[in-house]
Design a protein around this nucleic acid. Sequence first.
DNA 1: ATGAAAGCGCTAACAA
DNA 2: TTGTTAGCGCTTTCAT
Lengths: 334, 334
Amino acid sequence: MEKVTSLQVAQRAGVSQSAVSRVFTPGASASAKTVEKVRKAAEELGYRPNMMARAMITGKSRIIGLVVAYLDNQFYPLAMERLSNALQEQGYHILVFTADNSRGNVEEVMKELLDYQVDGIVTASVGMTNDLTDRCAAAGIPVVMFNRGQDGDHVSSVTSANVAGGRKVAEFLLSCGHKSIAHISGWQGSSTGRDRQQGFCDALAAGGVTPQVIDGMYDRDTASAATRQLMGTDTPPDAIFVGNDHMAFAVMDTLRVELGLRVPDDVAVVGYDDVPLAAWAAYDLTTMRQPVNRMVDATVSTLLTRINDPATPARRIEIESPLIQRGSTKGPIA
Amino acid sequence: MEKVTSLQVAQRAGVSQSAVSRVFTPGASASAKTVEKVRKAAEELGYRPNMMARAMITGKSRIIGLVVAYLDNQFYPLAMERLSNALQEQGYHILVFTADNSRGNVEEVMKELLDYQVDGIVTASVGMTNDLTDRCAAAGIPVVMFNRGQDGDHVSSVTSANVAGGRKVAEFLLSCGHKSIAHISGWQGSSTGRDRQQGFCDALAAGGVTPQVIDGMYDRDTASAATRQLMGTDTPPDAIFVGNDHMAFAVMDTLRVELGLRVPDDVAVVGYDDVPLAAWAAYDLTTMRQPVNRMVDATVSTLLTRINDPATPARRIEIESPLIQRGSTKGPIA
DNA sequence: ATGAAAGCGCTAACAA
DNA sequence: TTGTTAGCGCTTTCAT
């Protein structure tokens, strides 16, 4: 049964090959009798339409390209799982491309992506040049950046409200009575990292506080080193806002085990993302929740809208995030 | 520049369409002059060969289907990232299919997979029926099960040496002087779960110890409940071997935070996988390392070997695992 | 509602 | 080495 074609089914059913095609094409017309005969023959032969051939004609592959950089931050596998599920429900599937965040690499990967005639592209934790997004637009392929923002109007993006998020954290920390505050920021090469920092610093400034800021690069080791540096000064902070949970865990490890400090008694720690691990007892991390489900839903709907109607303009969606208070911070003072 | 075909390139370069094809087909011959002209024209037009059309003729899509169930256990995203990278280097890409582990769902997903004319399939953390593997074999599509074993000779599998691994843990725990030992096992519906348990119990029996065993279902909540149950008896264990790290973290959380016990002083804990989190200070978990890189390499080489020569018999590969001793256990007694 | 015929963009014989 | 020709398996006019 190495390869069953529609022609073979047609012959067995005693109809034309196009009749078979119609039976398997959603919006086509065939008499009940024909459908019956064809379905039976197809069943017996184990026939299923060849997506490649179909894609070639219709120009729709029902494949979405996903470009992703790192999977070590729990947030991304989670988002990816949800994304895959949501798309699968709509009859789409994800073709994965891994890229590091170097400019040339992303470019190379995107080109390959276009070879596959994908119907759309989602980039996660990956920055794009405007040149690149323009090219996708020119090729008529909608792009949605997940968890990264971007200027230019050819590309949609879905993020949480990062500036507002940073602000919320600042206001919360201030309300707890903290005066000496530090920020180990998300990578400054990413919009999320910059936005969170900006919101945070602005709101802190409004409260008369200037935080010490170090770029944590979304990297555990860098965040650990930053923690040591911060705590080694004459006036160590009593609260640290960390650019994402992934780094915040490293910060807590360094604080508690390496430096022998207590969280939150000696230092309060706030993260960003609310990955599952943040809720586990070992960390119990106060953090800004990025609502994965809503972000994924927005991504899918934006993508499908633009696939179905290419004229739709690019959207920039920001999802509101709540602060989830847990044990790594003390509550606000009464 | 909405869609550039080889024909357009051919016209611009002043050669035949097949000449263009040859220039872009790895094993084909063309004069330096032709290559030059074609490359230039292609560059100017932004031409890239259409993979779908190519796939249809050659019968090779250079797409590998990946069926995966859960991504919450850190081990799988990690493996997936490595797998994607390794395959990408060989010019292959991963088309993702998410399945829960119900029989019907896997079946449905596999059928869809076949529609895409994938060159091969990798299943991760997913069980397959022999009927299903037979069908893939009949379709001429090589399947490799990652981190799951399977009887029958149509399907290859790559696992670590789980029986031996379970045995090693038992011998280690015995050497530490533990007498009251429990096992929160991996899901008994999975070969890995069963194998680890078997090796563990056999070796313990040889040491005159009979462990209490509860199926943890690879689930945090189930593992937590099991922990409470175990510790609530008259003779609570002083050591617990947990079927994977993901559950072991839940066990440690429950032990330390909920029950107020110390690890390893009151109870020693051993996991399986050695995911990155196991090495973090918050858990510092003794565990059996499943060498992801070697497992992925074996998976890729097995897959590619069978793709390039379908006559190659299915392989069952077991990778040796070392025990990584950390702070969740006391060392062996001198 | 159905069949015949024309491709989708490409590779692979086959000649030349 | 090159161009010509015939499809890969399917959808989609166009007649009927």
